[in-house]
Amino acid sequence: MKVFAIAEHRFGELNPLSIELLNLANKLGESNAVVIGKDVSKFAEELAKFAEKVWKIEDASLENYTPDLYVDVLLQLINREKPDVVLVGNTAQGVEFAPYLAVKLGYPIVTDVVAVNTANGFVVSRYVMQGKIMVDLKVSTPCVLTIRQGAFKEGAQKSGKVLDAGIKPSKPSARKFIGYVQPEVGEVDISKAEIIVAVGRGIEDAANIPLAEELAQALGGVVAGSRPVIDSGWLPKDRQVGISGKIVKPKLYLALGISGAFQHVMGMKDSELIIAVNKDPEAPIFGVAHYGIVGNIFDVVPTLLDKLKAKK
């Protein structure tokens, strides 16, 4: 089975997920990395340590990612080399261009894949219901898969050869890249905090944020939040924990009313101690927490606060 893994890089850094794609590719068959950009020799050499072949696609117009040009050059390469499986990272970039590529190739696509099994046909696994339920899907090959970060961490070393694909974009991109916008900087850097009281949708209303703030203060920590709380404007964007926000590793992460969507969990799973309170016993947050409490945060938190204050 011939497998293509489309590497990703930004700000001069190779995304480590690119290597994870190759780990899966090596498990499935002949591993081919594809790396696209203006000058990608440095990345190609790194990828060659994990791939049998590395295909370079270089052009000045490919300096910054645009889905139009990525699809354009990948179509040329895939139609020529005919891989059985095309692997793409399930990232902001990968899950953007991969479905478009799949349509143009006429291939099936499955996103956010966490396991691949070839014992009985080509079967892939992914979560639905934001992590609560898993589904196995039978897919015909050739196909496109986007792969979840952290699912294929182990793999073989290789010393492959780097090849110039000899491919250029066939037309200019309709979508023009303008630039990157820096993250907002707030008064508190949650990634440096030792104690974090994090609130999710279960906090229910902006009026309840002070309760979390009071608890954070009693513990000597800061308040952070998951996406729904930031989206609602109850906390500023720089307090968001998750892939699209900040990665935190505090000594204590107290998760209040956070369901535990993957994008949040990736931002806090390495915390030294995670205690989660959620009224849903099936909430995925309990899969990552060290201690779990099934209950109402409005019962648990005030009691906890009273006891903390009584100690002082």
Binding site: D136, L137, I274, G287
Partner: peptide, 22 residues
């Protein structure tokens, strides 16, 4: 394009649960 083979509850390690009244 795709066919569901099966659905199941994901195998997860579970937190140690703290129980009792508040």
């Amino acid at each position: 394009k795709v066919e569901v083979v099966k659905m199941y509850l994901p195998p997860v390690k579970k937190a140690e649960m703290i129980t009792g009244d508040p």
